[in-house]
Simulated scan of single mutants.
Amino acid sequence: MSLRRTPLFEIYEAYGAKTVEFGGWEMPVQFSGILAEHEAVRTRGGLFDVSHMGEFEITGPDAIPFLQFLVTNDAARLSPGMAMYSPMVYDHGGCVDDLLVYCFSAERCWVVVNAGNIEKDFAWMSAHTDPFRVTLTNRSSDIALLALQGPRAQEVLQTITSSDLNEVGFYRFVETTVAGAPAVVSRTGYTGEDGFELYVEAAWAVPLWREILDAGQPFGILPCGLGCRDTLRLEARLPLYGHELAEDISPLEAGLGGFVKLDKGDFIGKDALARQKAEGVSRKVVGITMEGRGIPRQGYPVYHAGRQVGYVTSGTQSPTLQIPIGLVLVSADAAAVGSTLQVEIRGKQVPCRVVKTPFYKRAK
């Protein structure tokens, strides 16, 4: 099966991209190098092509009630110009996906989903449109998505847009133009840094990419790949579907209870999540730092007091902290901060410790 390509694929080579398969897409894992790109985002800024993400448009009188029934967070609190993060779960409480909701009006919203879940999510949402008065449209092929992240992101972007970016608060968005391109510009982020997402029609992707990098050159902005996006989000303890969230992992187990509003009314999976909360989760996703040599990788077994209690969901050598870090899904009795665990790495049980997360938090 051939891999899908974003509208920016044609210029990857010109910027030195090394591509890999990701969720059925041929995507840049790096341009100048993962460590250099990671450092750029933490200290200056980086530009990502995340056009592989999916965008669905929901229109109709019941757009908000439809979303309220589908997701665990409270869509009823949304007003025009607001964005919201939320898990979306099955009846048993496991995750269909985690997503962003953008509210343009009471009768028009976008849902932004993970690239590898586009078809699955669209089928799931389509199956639940009745009895709601909504039209659900998959606009993923029409829309390109660029993400400019880092402490200098606002300075760079402000030079090529007339909108006052000070007025775009966290989890807010505005419809504007950037370097002549009509764009939806939001401020959500997936790196632990400040930054913006720019949704544009696919034909604008290449000229906008070039304009942003040209504007960012005096600031040291770099094109960035998915390699550093993963190390950045892991340092910030942000979940990745297929790792910290999955069909068999609930938002409560993943530590996302703040995005599960059991008091908002009926929604898919409410009963299962309410039962899980009342009984207490039997396992939790927690952070670890290694105390012995070795890097924890996804799937590695985790032990406590001589028995296997879970596995690594994500792990890396933290470029910012210069230590091996990871997220693990372990039984609740082994999840307390300060607990000593062991990760099996190449046949050896290497000690690690449960720590508070996020591992990295930017200065305000």
Results as ranks from 00 to 15, higher is better:
Gln322Arg: 09
Pro28Phe: 06
Ala334Ser: 15
Asp98Pro: 07
Glu197Gly: 13
Ala183Glu: 13
Thr19Asp: 05
Ala305His: 14
Ile212Gln: 08
Arg133Thr: 07
His128Tyr: 12
Leu136Val: 12
Glu39Asp: 15
Ala278Thr: 12
Leu341Ala: 14
Val200Glu: 04
Val29Gln: 07
Val20Thr: 13
Glu235Thr: 02
Val156Phe: 00
Thr137His: 00
Asp164His: 09
Val260Pro: 05
Gly265Met: 15
Val355Gln: 11
Leu78Arg: 11
Pro319Ala: 07
Val309Gln: 00
Pro351Glu: 13
Phe69Leu: 07
Cys228Tyr: 02
Arg172Leu: 01
Leu35Phe: 04
Glu175Val: 03
Tyr15Lys: 02
Thr129Ala: 05
Glu37Ser: 02
Pro7Gln: 02
Lys264Pro: 01
Gly315Thr: 07
Thr135Asp: 15
Ile64Ala: 04
Lys261Met: 09
His243Pro: 00
Val113Cys: 13
Gln308Ala: 14
Pro351Phe: 05
Asp97Arg: 12
Ser2Asp: 04
Asn166Val: 05
Glu244Asp: 15
Val185Asn: 01
Leu148Gly: 07
Asp214Arg: 15
Asn114Glu: 14
Phe132Gly: 12
Phe267Ile: 06
Pro239Met: 02
Ala215Leu: 09
Tyr300Met: 15
Cys224Glu: 01
Ser141Tyr: 02
Ile143Ser: 00
Gly116Glu: 14
Asp194Ile: 05
Asp98Lys: 00
Phe66Tyr: 15
Glu107Val: 05
Ala202Glu: 12
Val309Pro: 00
Asp194His: 03
Leu232Glu: 08
Val343Ile: 15
Gly294Val: 08
Thr191Asn: 08
Gly287Asp: 04
Asp271Trp: 07
Asp49Ile: 04
Phe173Ser: 07
Ser126Glu: 12
Gly299Thr: 06
Thr43Pro: 01
Glu13Met: 03
Gly45Ala: 02
Tyr241Val: 02
Gly60Leu: 12
Gln349Ile: 13
Ser126Lys: 10
Leu252Asn: 06
Lys356Ala: 14
Ala17Asn: 12
Val89Pro: 12
Gly299Gln: 08
Ala63Thr: 14
Arg210Ile: 15
His38Trp: 04
Val96Gln: 07
Gln149Arg: 06
Val309Cys: 03
Leu8Gln: 06
Val206Pro: 00
Ala83His: 05
Phe22Glu: 09
Gln322Pro: 00
Arg187Lys: 12
Gly242Tyr: 06
Tyr90Met: 13
Ser105Leu: 14
Thr340Pro: 03
Leu136Glu: 06
Ile11Cys: 07
Lys261Pro: 05
Ala183Ile: 11
Phe122Thr: 01
Val184Tyr: 01
Val134Arg: 09
Ala274Asp: 13
Pro358Lys: 04
Val286Ala: 03
Ala106Val: 01
Ala179Gln: 06
Pro358Ser: 14
Val96Lys: 10
Leu3His: 02
Ala123Gly: 12
Arg293Ser: 08
Tyr190Gly: 11
Ser126Asn: 10
Ala36Cys: 00
Gly265Thr: 10
Ala274Cys: 05
Phe56Asp: 10
Thr231Met: 01
Leu252Ser: 15
Val184Thr: 10
Glu167Arg: 15
Asp230Glu: 15
Thr231Asn: 02
Phe122Gly: 04
Pro80Gln: 05
Met88Trp: 00
Leu327Met: 08
Leu35Asn: 06
Trp204Arg: 12
Tyr12Pro: 01
Met84Gln: 13
Ala246Glu: 11
Glu344Cys: 07
Gln342Asp: 14
